[in-house]
C-alpha cells in the first residue's frame, strides 16, 4: 500500500481553497469564522465582494499561483443577479467568452463557479464539496 493510501485523514495534506463570494448570494457573513474560513469547511477561505462580477480572473490566477489548490467564485442565482448582470459577466469571463479572460496556461479544472440564492447555504456546501473532490488529485 502506498504511503498516500495508508495515510489517516489527520495526516492528509491540508488544502487551501480560495473563494470569491458575492455578499448577496449565499448568507456568507454568517458562514465564516474570524479568519475568513468557512465554519463548515475550514480549508476554504473566503473573500467577500459586493458582486461576483467584480472578480478579476487575474485574482483567481493570483490565488492559484500562490499556493491555492483551487479557487472558485460564487454569485447570485442565474437570472437573478442583484446588479442584473454580474453573475453572467463572471461566468462569461471564466468561460473565455468575455474579456478579461483567464490565461490559457491556467488549469481551468481548478477554477469553479457557483450561483446560488441567499437560501442556498446547503446546496452551496454540497457543490463546494463536489468541486473540492474533483480537484483533489490535480
Amino acid at each position: 500500500m502506498s504511503e498516500l493510501q495508508s495515510a489517516s485523514p489527520s495526516e492528509k495534506k491540508k488544502r487551501v481553497i480560495v473563494g470569491f463570494v458575492c455578499e448577496r448570494s449565499i448568507p456568507i457573513h454568517d458562514m465564516l469564522d474570524a479568519h475568513q474560513a468557512l465554519l463548515d469547511d475550514p480549508e476554504t477561505k473566503i473573500i467577500i465582494l459586493p458582486c461576483s462580477g467584480m472578480v478579476k480572473p487575474t485574482q483567481m490566477e493570483l490565488a492559484l499561483a500562490n499556493g491555492a489548490d483551487a479557487t472558485f467564485v460564487c454569485g447570485c442565482a442565474m437570472n437573478d443577479c442583484h446588479y442584473r448582470t454580474g453573475n453572467i459577466m463572471i461566468r462569461e469571463r471564466l468561460e473565455g467568452e468575455r474579456n478579461p479572460k483567464l490565461r490559457k496556461s491556467t488549469d481551468k479544472r481548478k477554477v469553479g463557479m457557483f450561483f446560488f440564492t441567499m437560501k442556498d447555504k446547503r446546496p452551496f456546501l454540497e457543490a463546494l464539496a463536489q468541486f473540492k473532490a474533483s480537484t483533489e488529485n490535480l
Partner: peptide
C-alpha cells in the same frame, strides 16, 4: 457600487475606493 467595471478592467484603471483591487490581492 457593484464593481462589475472593476472586474472588467484588465489594467486596474477603475476601482471602488473602499474595495480596492490591491486590497483584495
Amino acid at each position: 457600487e457593484c464593481g462589475i467595471c472593476v472586474g472588467a478592467c484588465p489594467f486596474q484603471a477603475i476601482e471602488l475606493p473602499n474595495t480596492h483591487s490591491k486590497t483584495i490581492d
